[in-house]
């Protein structure tokens, strides 16, 4: 192999690796499209979602099964979340969703608790049983005011 061919190869490799880096950043990290099976669109409405982000993971028993794809306010000022879940899931229609926090100040995510109903959630269906995010500041504030109430 001549020097020129080797150099061409190295340059080709450099461009390829760089492109892979860009693709990884865009698709996998940036979530240009969800890396993993999707296809099941489910909605859930909350009073309070705290610091939940778009692309926050959706888990069942701690296993990631999808992600939050849209966060919006509905007509009555409730927070309406759209999730993209693995289409192979057969979730009962009485499943519930909760917004939990990893650790004390960690990232927020949605955890789904499967129900016991015979009927399944269809694509585009809504989870009716939801549990709001716990807002740490309010919780602390309530604890403090309770303590204060006891003292007076």
């Amino acid at each position: 192999m001549t020097n020129t061919t080797i150099r061409d190869l190295v340059v080709g490799l450099f461009v390829a690796v760089g492109m892979v880096a860009i693709a990884y950043m865009s698709f996998s990290l940036g979530g240009l499209s969800y890396a993993g099976p999707g296809g099941l669109q489910i909605f859930a409405t909350f009073n309070e979602i705290g610091g939940l982000n778009k692309r926050a993971p959706v888990v069942i028993g701690g296993v990631k099964v999808g992600q939050v794809t849209r966060i919006a306010l509905d007509d009555e000022y409730y927070a309406r979340i759209e999730m993209d879940l693995d289409a192979r899931l057969n979730l009962p229609d009485d499943s519930s969703a909760a917004i939990l926090t990893r650790g004390l100040l960690g990232n927020q995510f949605i955890s789904i608790e499967p129900g016991a109903s015979e009927d399944l959630l269809e694509p585009g269906a809504e989870i009716s049983l939801t549990e709001d995010a716990v807002i740490m500041e309010r919780l602390i504030g309530r604890v403090i005011s309770n303590l204060g109430g006891d003292g007076s």
């Binding site: 996998s28 940036g30 979530g31 240009l32 982000n53 778009k54 692309r55 993971p57 990232n107």
Partner: peptide, 11 residues
Amino acid sequence: ETVTTFEDDVA
């Protein structure tokens, strides 16, 4: 993964 989005950050 959670915090980065294509539109806001990567692009």
